[in-house]
């Protein structure tokens, strides 16, 4: 008897749960991508503000340039995450389709007197395994990409905090610089919290 005959019934609810989890991760990533776009605009404003402040905000200017580079890197990273999550949604959908087909083929094999369905069921099982392996690979890639994003955001947090310190040396521009760097810090913290919850998703931990 093929593995498909024995394990397919337990796979069905798991695939449904996985799809639900991926949809939630996708929604969270969409909101992070939106926030990352906001950071890009903020970094641009911070650069202009630092230029206006001149020598008094030279340190802040260096950091705002770094924050702009960070925001672009973050957008690229989110783009890669979105691509991976779409890949996962597609694979889980295929796994769900496989499960239905396999269930019906299994019933056919069980009911057929001459078991003509068995070779087709085996071929289906190989195809199922291929989809399952591809999903497992995408899941690993997504986990790694999330870790990379998290590390990047940690760096962003350090930059934002340093910008807050530099803002204090901005003389007459100290207040607007502090406001900009504070907003930066809040947004980076918001992204960090989102990514932290994504890392804990049962889709990765397997609970």
């Amino acid at each position: 008897m093929t593995t498909a005959l024995t394990t397919i019934s337990s796979k069905a609810p798991q695939a449904g749960v996985d799809l639900l989890r991926i949809v939630r991760i996708n929604e969270e990533i969409k909101s992070v991508v939106g926030v990352a776009f906001k950071i890009n605009i903020m970094a641009l404003n911070a650069i202009f503000l630092a230029k206006r402040a001149g020598t008094a905000a030279r340190g802040f200017g260096v950091l705002s340039n770094e924050l702009r580079v960070f925001s672009q890197d973050l957008r690229d990273c989110m783009g890669a995450l979105t691509g991976l999550i779409h890949g996962c949604v597609n694979e889980v959908s295929l796994v769900l389709q496989d499960i239905r087909h396999t269930r019906l083929l299994r019933q056919a094999a069980e009911m057929s007197p001459k078991s003509q369905a068995v070779p087709v069921l085996r071929a289906r099982e190989i195809e199922n395994d291929r989809h399952t392996q591809r999903l497992a690979s995408l899941r690993k890639q997504l986990k790694r990409a999330l870790e990379d994003a998290f590390q990047m955001v940690e760096l962003g947090g350090v930059l934002a905090k340093s910008a807050k310190i530099e803002a204090a040396y901005g003389q007459s521009f100290a207040v607007p610089l502090a406001q900009v760097s504070g907003e930066f810090d809040n947004i980076v913290e918001e992204i960090r919290t989102s990514l932290e919850s994504l890392r804990r998703s049962a889709f990765f931990t397997g609970n």
Partner: peptide, 12 residues
């Protein structure tokens, strides 16, 4: 949904 029933009958 009726594929198994049709298939098994046909294959006989």
């Amino acid at each position: 949904e009726i594929f198994p029933a049709v298939f098994s009958a046909l294959s006989s």
